[in-house]
Simulated assay, not measured.
Amino acid sequence: VLSREPLTGLNEAARTQALVNLVRRKGLELLPWTPELRQWQARVALLRQLDVKAQDHSEWPNISDAALLAGLEDWLGPY
């Protein structure tokens, strides 16, 4: 790196797309996951799995790492 400086003048959409692209390229590990958040993710996944077995569909969201990466624009963009 020769120098670092903030990019001023980027509109909101360009900033959002840059963030989404960065997370997609580097992975969800860039986000501030805590052990508690990963445990919550596992609990929701279990509830979803049990719900699917009982009803062939689930009201619980798919928040697996793969699903989160596939839907970055939907949930990370607004954040």
Rank of each mutant, 00 (worst) to 15 (best):
D56R: 09
A42S: 10
V52E: 08
L37C: 09
G71P: 03
R24G: 06
A13L: 12
R43C: 13
Q49K: 07
V52W: 05
L22T: 04
A14D: 15
R38G: 11
G27P: 04
L47N: 03
H57M: 14
R15H: 12
Q41G: 05
W60E: 12
D74R: 05
L76T: 02
H57C: 15
Q17R: 10
L46I: 00
A18M: 13
R24T: 01
L2G: 15
H57I: 12
P61D: 06
A45Q: 03
R4G: 12
Q17G: 13
D74W: 06
S3A: 12
W60Q: 13
G9N: 06
N62D: 15
L72N: 00
D74Y: 04
L31Q: 06
V23E: 01
R15K: 11
A45K: 02
A18P: 01
A13V: 10
R48T: 02
N21F: 05
E36N: 11
P32S: 15
L69W: 05
Y79C: 15
L10E: 11
L37K: 03
N62T: 08
I63Q: 05
Q49H: 07
A14E: 14
W40M: 13
N11R: 11
L19D: 01
D56Q: 14
E12C: 15
A13G: 12
G9I: 07
L22M: 06
Y79H: 12
K26P: 02
D65Y: 10
R38L: 11
E29C: 14
G77P: 02
R24A: 09
P78I: 02
Q55T: 06
A67H: 08
P32M: 11
A42T: 02
V1K: 06
I63T: 01
A67S: 13
L10W: 09
